[in-house]
Amino acid sequence: MARPDAPRHPTEQHRPQVVLGAVTTGLLNTSEPLPLEAARQALALLPGVSADWRRHPIEQVVSPDLFFGLDCKLAVRSGAQPRVIGTARARAVLTAGHVLQGSASVAVVLDASKRRLPWAHYAARTGMVEAINKADPADLVNGFLHGRSGSTVLDLGKTGSYVMSLLDRVPQVDRQARLKTQTCRLLWAAHLREDVEPDGRVEAGDDGVFRVRMSTPSELLPQFVEFCEVLAMHDWLLSALKNAFDRSARRGRRAEDEIDPALSYLGHIWNPTAHLPHEMRWLWQALEDEAQLTWEWQSTLTRVRDKVTLLTRKAIEETLHKESV
């Protein structure tokens, strides 16, 4: 029920031209991964509807969509920031019972009206905002991905973080994760164009944020969103493992305190094509060819496991040495 659908048969004048989104990824605060049944209960964030779920090859549960009221500005690279009014759509995605994502998006309809309309108008168009002033779609894409943030500008990352925070309060979560991780943010923007072949571009910024832009027909938008969620999760996995490895080498830390939870929480999860929509495989493949994220993961994991081997050997040698003294 909660999988995003392409904007549905809107009238010509109300067709969104740009869709903006953010995926926030972090660790669910539990000591052990949530079993599928518990995860389905935890992610039923609205009464009356259940979460969607998959068992193979990695368990994944997707919450129903929640909606957030918006009346704010959109960042642009040039000229006046357009004001938009409507609702953002957001959902929680839990993978392998442990990796939690807040995925928020909003479809932007340009030139819709000259003033704020009665709320019923926006409530009937969920997940959409309408811009009051004129704006250029390409400028909105750039502005959202690279614009400066501000207190009056759309902040979908916050929306995603809020959805994630809902999972802190559910009884299934014991709030005792043993691994320290940071949340990662990915921003994406899609320029909807019915007449073009889909075309994507991924940038890893110096701020550590992945930014994905795409030109796509609206029917492929749901798959594109899922692609972004897959990428965000794997970007997070990679940083979480690397950070744990870095911490393990720091003076004054017991290496195994960092490495053990990292291996047991994260070691088995990497599988980018597991839930990658069929229609997005070409994009992932092209990304792999150049960015080689899977190689980077394998190499990091090998270093971690080598370190475990070396620590084990050292421990054995120390024990033997003690016995021989």
Partner: peptide
């Protein structure tokens, strides 16, 4: 900063597996 600009693959093989457990059917 790294950037990737792929081109769309022309054909994709047919699917043999699908799993979609919709929590709720209307």
């Amino acid at each position: 900063m790294t950037a990737v600009t792929p081109t769309r693959a022309s054909s994709t093989p047919a699917r043999v597996f699908s799993e979609r457990n919709q929590g709720t059917t209307v």
